[in-house]
C-alpha cells in the first residue's frame, strides 16, 4: 500500500513538473520523439524561400505627420503681478524696521538671534496695528528646489507661529515660500548661501 501511495505521489510530483514545463513553453511542439520529421508546417518558415529582393516600389505605409504645431499662443506679458518682495506702497523706512531672520542649512529652527529679531518685529506690529505682513521663506540654492519649496514654507511658518505666541493675530500674518527661487545674494558661496536662508517680512498693508 505504501508503495502505491509513494508511486502516486511520485506521479503527482512528476505531473507537477511536466505541467510546469508545459507552462514555460509558449507553443508546444509536436512530441514526435522518434519519428522522422513530419511534413513541415506550412504556416511557419517565414521567408525561408529566397525572398525576392525588396522592390523599390513606393513605401507601403504613408504617414503624413500632422502639421499642427503647438499654439504659439504665448502668454502676453501679464501685469507684473509678482510683488518684487517689496511693496511700493509701504514706505521704505517702515519696511526697514522689520528685521530678516536667518537659518542653518536644511533647518527651520529659530535661533536665539532669530527670536530676538522676531520680538522686535512683534513690537513693531503691536505699535502699527493696521499693518499686515507677509512672511517670505527662502532657501539657499544648494538643496533640492522641490524640497526647498516646502522648507521655505516651513521657515515662514516657524516665524509666523512665533509671532503668534508673541500676541500678533494670525490674520495679520500671511506666509509664502519662494524656495530657492528668490536669492537675496546671487552668489554661489557660503556667504551668499548664509544670506539666502532667510525669512523676509514684507508689509502688504
Amino acid at each position: 500500500m505504501r508503495k502505491v501511495l509513494v508511486g502516486f505521489l511520485c506521479c503527482l510530483v512528476f505531473a507537477g513538473c511536466a505541467s510546469q514545463e508545459a507552462a514555460k513553453k509558449s507553443e508546444p511542439v509536436a512530441s514526435s520523439a522518434t519519428t522522422a520529421p513530419a511534413a513541415p508546417e506550412a504556416k511557419q518558415a517565414p521567408a525561408i524561400v529566397e525572398s525576392a529582393p525588396a522592390t523599390p516600389a513606393p513605401a507601403p505605409t504613408a504617414v503624413a505627420p500632422k502639421a499642427e504645431a503647438p499654439a504659439q499662443a504665448v502668454e502676453t506679458p501679464a501685469q507684473p503681478v509678482v510683488s518684487d518682495s517689496g511693496n511700493k506702497a509701504a514706505p521704505a523706512a517702515l519696511q526697514e524696521e522689520l528685521q530678516k531672520i536667518y537659518f542653518a542649512f536644511d533647518s527651520a529652527e529659530l535661533t536665539q538671534e532669530s527670536r530676538d529679531a522676531l520680538s522686535k518685529n512683534a513690537d513693531y506690529l503691536k505699535n502699527n496695528t493696521a499693518v499686515k505682513i507677509r512672511i517670505e521663506g527662502n532657501c539657499d540654492e544648494r538643496g533640492s528646489d522641490e524640497y526647498n519649496l516646502a522648507l521655505g514654507e516651513r521657515r515662514a511658518k516657524a516665524a509666523k507661529d512665533y509671532l503668534e505666541t508673541l500676541g500678533i493675530p494670525s490674520d495679520r500674518l500671511a506666509t509664502i515660500s519662494y524656495g530657492e527661487e528668490r536669492p537675496a545674494d546671487p552668489g554661489h558661496n557660503e556667504e551668499a548661501w548664509t544670506k539666502n536662508r532667510r525669512d523676509e517680512f514684507v508689509i502688504i498693508k
Partner: peptide
C-alpha cells in the same frame, strides 16, 4: 489519474535520443 497528466501534458521539448 497518475498517467493522465503525463499524457496530456507530454513535455513539449521531447526529442529523439
Amino acid at each position: 489519474l497518475c498517467l493522465a497528466p503525463q499524457v496530456v501534458l507530454a513535455p513539449p521539448k521531447t526529442f529523439a535520443d
